[in-house]
Simulated scan of single mutants.
Amino acid sequence: MNEIFKSIEKIAIKISNALKYTELGYTDHKNQTGDVQLKLDVLSDKIIEEEFKKIDSIKAIISEEKDDIQDINLDGKYIVAYDPLDGSSLVDVNFAVGSIFGIYEHELKPKNLVASAYAIYGPRLELVICIDKPQLYRFAENKEFKFIKDLKLAEKGKLNSTGASQWGWSQKHREFVKKLFDEKYRLRYSGAMVADLHQILLKGGGIFSYPATTDAPKAKLRVVFEVLPFAYIYEKAGGKTTDGNSNSLFEIEIKEVHQTTPCFFGSSYEIETLKKIYKD
């Protein structure tokens, strides 16, 4: 496992450098979910694949930018699922973006997710690595990642990060968001999942929402390499997760690699409030 994390450190540095200097723009290709691939998406995916191919313990990799599982070493122990560059469409306006990694042991099942990590490329390069608890690392002047602190969510937060098409929200979700604003929550939403979830973690609480909508009843965030890795981090930080009805996002049954789901991550108060409104 340590070898995988060291590889993720190398990946983060390489992608961070690529973001600074690589040409922006689109390719002529679409990924499995129909999004036209940015040149940076493809480059980031290539960087990650090349690093993970060097590790004997990795059995297979799964990328948002690839259609299927790619075998690496059949004798390996881990399957690594990743989003190479979350929020890549925001690079041209210089917003913070990131890479997400979920590490599964032997099989692609929620209960087999044993570690998660993500890199955030902002004014500073940071990594959050989580096995038993999420830990924040920052890239320092000596060209190494320095441990900063453990991350913990409070029982109740102040931030509301709500995504998806507002015109397609259900009445229950509208009611929930109104309640948050009535309780003086601050709106914080950039459109990059990593950046928004990172902010809530570092500020100590709040909620990130990506609900079902009329145009996307199964929402748009991918279970295997976006939703579950962050669910792991948030629950290890003392928070809660749900799809709006479940007690945890880990109740999801994985049926396909690019499966999507509505998802909510946050402090206990916000998640329990959402579940009550959705149930009522």
Rank of each mutant, 00 (worst) to 15 (best):
N2Y: 02
E3N: 00
K6Q: 10
S7L: 04
E9D: 12
A12I: 11
A12H: 01
K14W: 14
K14G: 13
N17H: 15
L19T: 01
Y21W: 13
T27P: 06
N31E: 13
D35E: 14
D41V: 07
D45S: 08
I47Y: 06
E51Y: 06
E51D: 11
K54F: 00
K59P: 09
K59D: 08
A60V: 01
I61G: 00
K66F: 02
K66Y: 05
D67F: 09
Q70C: 05
Q70F: 05
N73K: 07
L74K: 15
P84E: 11
L85F: 07
L90T: 00
V91C: 07
D92C: 00
D92V: 04
F95Y: 08
A96L: 10
V97A: 06
V97I: 12
G102T: 04
I103H: 04
P110C: 10
P110T: 09
K111D: 05
K111A: 03
L113N: 10
V114H: 02
I120W: 01
G122C: 14
G122H: 14
E126G: 02
D132A: 11
Q135W: 11
L136D: 08
Y137C: 02
A140T: 15
E141C: 12
N142Q: 14
N142H: 15
N142S: 12
K143F: 14
K146F: 06
I148V: 14
E155N: 15
N160P: 01
G163W: 07
Q166E: 10
R174W: 10
F176E: 00
K178V: 03
F181H: 08
E183K: 15
K184C: 02
Y185T: 06
L187E: 06
L187S: 08
Y189C: 01
S190Y: 05
A192Y: 10
A195S: 07
H198R: 15
K203R: 11
G204R: 06
T213D: 05
T213A: 10
V224Y: 03
F225H: 13
V227Q: 02
L228I: 11
I233K: 12
A237E: 08
G239Y: 01
D243F: 13
I252C: 07
V257L: 14
T261Q: 05
T261E: 01
T261H: 08
C263F: 02
S268Q: 15
I271Q: 04
I271N: 07
E272Q: 03
L274M: 03
K276A: 11
K276F: 06
Y278C: 05
D280H: 14
